[in-house]
Write a protein that binds this DNA or RNA. Structure first.
Lengths: 329, 329
DNA sequence: TTGAAAGCGCTAACAG
DNA sequence: CTGTTAGCGCTTTCAA
């Protein structure tokens, strides 16, 4: 391994000078600079990131802790975060907490130990206190940890209202909502949006708990449908959940959208892969990730931030699992 | 931040002693040890990972470079790698190269700079020479970089043979294969397996290039079907590709499996989410990831390895996109 | 058993 | 403009 000393020797200058040209800081004569640059090239020298980190207490890395890398929503989010981070010269370290609070804790600790400059959390099992004491700039993404932590989410309640309204406009008379995990603010908000609309419209409704898992969703949908055969619309709280519902509907010999209309939530590419393709509320996934990344970087660089709570709006994508109103008239 | 010095002072011993108890190395009196342990607890001291890494030139991290985090096959693989690595006390750093050779190169360099102890590569755009000169223990997973690099793959050719045989036994007379990217050994092997079986059976066949992308697969399938309306079986080289084919078939007003039978390759949960659910060749994804991780760790720890090429066998999972032979008789 | 001190590779005072 | 030197926090000789 070639070090800054080797370069200094080779270029016949001191290590300080080499460091100066490396960091473009302080005065260096044209001549010295050239000698150093030449030596660097000749020796194929690359400054040791660990040594730098140790001294600077900064690694130009940001950690991204995901709850479940297996749910395609999160990889999408990760892509956006990575894109922006790279733009600003930060590397992102992906951590998969696997819905396990212990792993979450470990990663938080490990990242801090590695002197990451900041962390984006898409998990919220940890309490604010626990997260806060890590003492590294953080932003919460798609999950809410506390109002002390800058947060980026989508407009879950409005999205849910849109979804529910769409089902009603499409003629549904009895709508089931497959809600996400209890206590998860995003899931609760979607439920509230749903409730608000069905109540206002006086449409029959029921709620099942599907968390965000396919299998659970399939099972819950089946149970719901058995008990309430007149259900004709399902608002699933994620696209994966919607897929579970579709499967259940299909297994029970009913058709989508003829017998039962289904709308998902997320807007991941996955929805288009289904047959029939999934009508859904698209979150601005890329924008969410990008916003969180930019926000975190501002925090890191101690630049002013304009607000600490960003709620990005969603939009309805009508595909094949719901019928437009006109078609049923 | 509390350092080893603080602990030493607190415990009234030297930093060397603290280091000894931290690493359980060298002689330490019972008394000293207890004092140190107490001080550590009291001060909530955690050794600085970066400083350790700098000295040891080892970080107990392994890098995992994925080509496309958005294809659900890779997150599955990542989970397995993580599981095993954690077991052995290694942390894994996920890197998403995004099918971009530049990012791949950057990550390779960055990981080396961070003193990762080893790297698992699931990409192969880089040449052996380029990969080799990084000088960090490596294993290739699901991709082949060269016979100098220990490799873990599944039995692609056999898997493809099974898939094709299954379609023939299910009554297909004209089978299309949606192949993966040219030059990718796994994709080439699947093609060869396909060819071998159709030729031997004298079944009509055709090959389309779908890479591993949904959209491309949908388009290619559509083209193939327009030109050859008598195609009645499709062997897709990945589950995502199969989904694209299903979509195309559906769009063209044909039914799966009645008109066209489809079999995928991978065995990711995604296949079960489709309607009808996807018959597929399941790779032992978890085993693959686990094997690669164990192999790499042996390499890192300079333990003997039993072989440098591991080909794990696949197996057929019959679901709804193909019909059993009996049913068609 | 223990501690002093050198050094992992780099940065930044500070003095020249 | 440039070099010397003292660390960043930890590990490991080496001598006591």
């Amino acid at each position: 391994m070639t070090t800054i000393r080797d370069v200094a020797k080779h270029a016949q200058v001191s290590v300080a000078t080499v460091s100066r040209v490396l960091n473009q800081k302080g005065y260096v004569s044209k001549q010295a600079e050239e000698a150093v640059l030449a030596a660097i090239k000749e020796l194929d020298f690359r400054p040791n990131a660990v040594a730098r980190t140790l001294y600077n207490k900064s690694s130009r890395m940001i950690g991204l802790i995901l709850p479940d890398i297996t749910n395609p929503f999160f990889p999408e989010l990760a892509r956006a975060v990575e894109d922006i981070a790279l733009t600003y010269g930060y590397t992102v370290v992906l951590c998969n907490a696997d819905e396990d609070i212990k792993k979450e804790r470990n990663y938080l600790e490990a990242l801090k130990q590695k002197y990451v400059d900041g962390i984006i959390l898409t998990t919220n099992q940890l309490s604010f206190a626990e997260v806060d004491k890590v003492g590294v700039p953080m932003v919460a993404l798609d999950r809410i940890i506390g109002d002390q932590i800058p947060t980026v989410v989508s407009a879950n309640k409005e999205g849910a209202e849109m979804a529910t309204t769409h089902l009603i406009e499409s003629g549904c008379k009895f709508i089931a909502h497959l809600r996400g995990p209890k206590g998860l603010a995003t899931a609760d908000d979607r439920l509230h949006g749903f409730r608000k609309v069905v109540e206002k419209a006086g449409v029959a409704s029921i709620v099942g708990e599907a968390d965000f898992y396919f299998e659970k969703s399939e099972q819950v949908t089946r149970d719901l449908l058995e008990q309430h055969p007149s259900i004709d619309g399902i608002f699933a709280s994620s696209d994966v959940t919607a897929a579970g519902a579709m499967k259940a509907v299909n297994r029970m010999g009913k058709r989508v959208p003829e017998d039962i209309q289904i709308i998902g939530y997320d807007g991941i590419p996955f929805g288009e892969m289904l047959v029939p393709s999934l009508t859904t509320i698209a979150q601005p996934i890329y924008e969410m990730g990008a916003t969180a990344a930019r926000l975190l970087i501002k925090l890191i660089e101690k630049k002013p931030i304009e607000g600490s709570y960003f709620e990005l709006s969603t939009n309805l994508i009508v595909r094949e699992t719901t019928k437009r109103k006109e078609e049923i008239e």
